[in-house]
Design a protein around this nucleic acid. Structure first.
Length: 742
RNA sequence: GGGCUCCUAGCUCAGUUGGUUAGAGCAUUCGGUUUACAUCCGAAAGGUCACAGGUUCGAGCCCUGUGGAGCCCACCA
């Protein structure tokens, strides 16, 4: 053995011996109890971050432990198409080539992103392998694999036929210039100075930066406790406007800040997110005053057809002339949403989207956790889950992105003349308009071929089908929210509904993931699992904490505090990084990247390496063969009995802590025992023992048992030493049975 | 603004139904070591458990309040 442990040399070799002889592939063995984990799929085109390392370390620990305990273990690896994130990354590349997504038709863009993902997906897969993850690669699944598409489409179709799907208006970030919607994450917030206009509204004066939307006002809001206006709440007031007088209801709503402006707000549900929410709370009418072309609609009377910026000037001028403008604060600074592409103002707009009714789904999902059918560790995280289950409202599942699973709804062009389409025509020019009108100049095939997006009215007639129902049809261009498909991940990976895997391995044993996705992911998986199979998809949920940067803050590119795990793997080895991270994560709380501990476990790795080296040296000096501890009758000294007893206690403590997902405690127990009991005390005594046969035999037994206990935590070094100690005669450590306390 | 969590040794953190003298790793100081390991061994020092009240025979732990930190969600017309 080398004088120090050289992880670089060892890791590759051990990886290939696991790949050749490790029991990675799960079999359906009905004489054994299954133990299953589905790996939360990392972004297919991304690279490993510290959180992924922690996730893999914990899951591999559980898997290796249960495998050694004799379970039929299955750990399914997979990667995620990461809809929005990937498309953004790809578009960034496009931009460097001076292009944008709007230069391509939908199909071409989709293919280009596919190629991009294919080019990049090898990286994360290799990193998972390099971590020593003992996953079953024969069951590897990508979120856009055919079996995924099939299940997701079928689920949607079934939900639709059971009346759980509907189309309704939803407020989205719409950019009239780009003619498309943006996800919340695509919206930039910039601080800008705009005039704040104080306008007379009947008995009130209120402040607004958007006077041009006044034609869409359907209420006036004040804070319910504002004594200045309390008497008005619930009453209707008469307001003098630019296009005649009109009546507005006064509502009391806590979203109004009495400190701001005059404490009175005009409510425009069609063009402001807050107002929209308030409108829903108070059943207000929605008047769309800005069209998708960015011009005022007919509701604005004489102002119809004006662009927003133009209309604002004219409206202000007219208000002034009518004496309705009280004052203007020119220096008002506020945050404005703009599109990330060119900085156009975002126009919050109501558009038809696809929704799922969650009422019938969330009840049983809440109950399984309350009844303990699904146990959440740590328990205090249950609060997040329960609150979400109470608050959750219907789920908008459509996204206006290309990279994802396209919603399998088809619109007949003939039945839906008011379908609005955007497409690239034969000469590559973008055209937008009603399909009924565009068909006069372009053929339907041309539209189909160049289609970028379509917008169907909320009462459009549609057919649900994976295949085109006929020549006359255009498919919905929206894709499913990523969580709609990843919510079915356990079912997808296990081949729901008929595969043998599904019958044997479902429900899985534990879902291990970060707590920040309780709401979008964990809740959805439970809902879908129960909906489709009657059973939640896992028995336990273990939620690990977030690994924060060295400054105690969340890692982020903009703060420049991101820790690249590669650096640590390179310098200290996989085992050390894994063990270091595990030791930091005791209670599933967030924790700062434990740099010192990683150093400490590097020392530990070297310590156990040298213990092995020393034992080998003693073996060589011993004349003849050391008696086998299990078979030989040994005359044990009290110190031998003592160390065996402590070993037994250690096994017990490790098992108990792992059962409770107390990984750091379990690791600590082995660490203390190996270093401070076996190395510091017992080995020192063995050095001076006359009865070397007994001492050495016991020592070897204790040490190799420790290797087993430590293996799930630090798989590489333990496997390597095991091979040397056993002269490769006992097979791989990873396939060996777990020690039993005596 | 709503919510969750944290504040324990110089640093990173344990402390699992309240119960002797509050622990670990790293760092510090002192000593040791002619060979398993200087990535070692032994020992020491280091804590008003954020602060203020309360409950209790007894509080790091339970309750209330204050202050600070981190994160999630919603964001100012």
């Amino acid at each position: 053995m080398e004088k120090t442990y050289n992880h670089k040399e060892v890791e590759d070799r051990i990886l290939s011996s696991w790949a050749e002889n490790g029991k990675l592939k799960a079999n359906i063995d009905k004489t054994k109890e299954p133990y299953t984990i589905i790996l939360p799929p990392p972004n297919a085109s991304g690279k490993m971050h510290t959180g992924n390392v922690l996730m893999i370390a914990i899951e591999d620990l559980l898997i290796r432990w249960k495998r050694m305990k004799g379970y039929e273990v299955l750990w399914v690896p997979g990667t995620d198409h990461a809809g929005f994130e990937t498309q953004t990354t790809f578009e960034r590349e496009l931009r460097q080539q001076g292009k944008s997504r709007l230069d391509f038709d939908r199909e071409t863009l989709y293919k280009k992103i596919w190629d991009f993902v294919k080019e990049n997906r090898g990286l994360i897969e290799n990193q998972i392998k390099r971590m020593g993850a003992s996953v079953d690669w024969s069951r590897y699944t990508f979120t856009l694999d055919d079996k995924a598409l099939e299940i997701v489409n079928n689920t949607f179709s079934r939900m639709e036929s059971e009346g759980l799907v509907y189309r309704d208006d939803y407020m989205v970030n719409y950019c009239p210039h780009c003619g498309t919607t943006f996800a919340d994450l695509e919206v930039r917030h910039v601080t800008r100075k705009d005039p704040l206009y104080y306008i007379k509204y009947g008995p009130f004066v209120l402040a607004t930066v958007r006077p041009e939307t006044k034609f869409g006002d359907t209420a006036i809001a004040v804070h319910p406790d504002d004594s200045r206006y309390k008497e008005y709440i619930g009453k209707e007031i008469e307001v003098e406007g630019l296009i005649g007088n009109f009546k507005l209801k006064v509502i009391g709503d806590a979203y109004v800040d009495p400190q701001f402006g005059t404490g009175v707000v005009k409510v425009t549900p069609a063009h402001d997110k807050n107002d929209y929410e308030a409108g829903k709370r108070h059943n207000l009418e929605i008047k769309q005053v800005i069209g998708l072309d960015g011009k005022l609609t007919n509701i604005a009377g004489p102002y119809a057809g004006m662009k927003v910026s133009e209309a604002r000037k004219v409206v202000v001028e007219d208000l002034k002339n009518k004496g309705l403008l009280v004052k203007v604060d020119e220096e008002y600074e506020h945050a404005v949403s703009v599109c990330y592409k060119k900085g156009h103002d975002i126009e919050p707009t109501i558009l038809p989207n696809w929704f799922i009714k969650v009422e019938s789904l969330k009840k049983p999902a809440k109950e399984v956790v309350e009844k303990g059918e699904v146990k959440i560790f740590p328990k205090w995280r249950e609060i997040t889950y329960r609150r979400w289950m109470e608050e959750m409202h219907d789920w908008p599942i459509s996204r206006q992105t290309v990279w994802g699973i396209r919603i399998p709804a088809w619109y007949s062009v003939e039945d839906n003349p008011s379908l609005k389409v955007t497409f690239l025509d034969k000469s590559g020019i973008v055209k937008t308009g009603l399909v009924s009108e565009l068909l006069a100049t372009s053929g339907l095939d041309e539209i189909k071929k160049g289609l970028q997006s379509l917008m169907a009215p909320k009462d459009a007639k549609y057919v649900i089908s994976r295949e085109s129902p006929g020549e006359d049809f255009l498919q919905e261009t929206d894709t499913f929210d990523t969580w709609f498909s990843s919510g079915q991940w356990p079912l997808i990976t296990l081949g729901y509904p008929n595969s043998e895997d599904f019958k044997y391995f479902y429900p899985t044993s534990v879902l291990e993931t970060g707590w920040e996705i309780i709401r979008p992911w964990v809740s959805r998986m439970i809902m879908f699992g129960i909906y489709l199979t009657g059973k939640p998809p896992f028995k336990n949920v273990y939620l690990h904490g977030l690994v924060r940067a060295l400054d105690g803050k969340k890692m982020s590119k903009s703060l420049g505090n991101v820790i690249d795990p590669e650096k640590y793997i390179e310098e200290y080895g996989v085992d050390t990084l894994r063990m270091g991270l595990i030791s930091g994560t005791a209670n599933g709380r967030d924790f700062t990247f434990p740099q010192d501990k990683i150093l400490g476990y590097r020392n530990f790795a070297n310590k156990i390496w040298n213990m092995g080296r020393f034992i080998l040296m003693m073996k060589e000096r011993y004349e003849g063969d050391v008696p086998q501890f299990e078979s030989a009758k040994l005359d044990l000294k009290p110190e031998d009995k003592e160390i065996l007893e402590k070993l037994s206690l250690t096994i017990k403590a490790v098992d108990e802590n792992l059962e409770k997902y107390r990984f750091a405690d379990a690791g600590e127990v082995i660490y203390q025992f190996m270093w401070h009991e076996v190395a510091d005390l017992y080995i020192e005594k063995v050095k001076n023992r006359e009865d070397k046969d007994v001492a050495l035999s016991t020592l070897i037994h204790v040490y190799t048992t420790c290797l087993k206990l430590l293996h799930p935590f630090m798989p590489f070094i333990t496997e390597e030493i095991w091979g040397i100690m056993t002269e490769n005669k006992k097979g791989l450590l990873m396939n060996s049975p777990w020690p039993v306390e005596k």
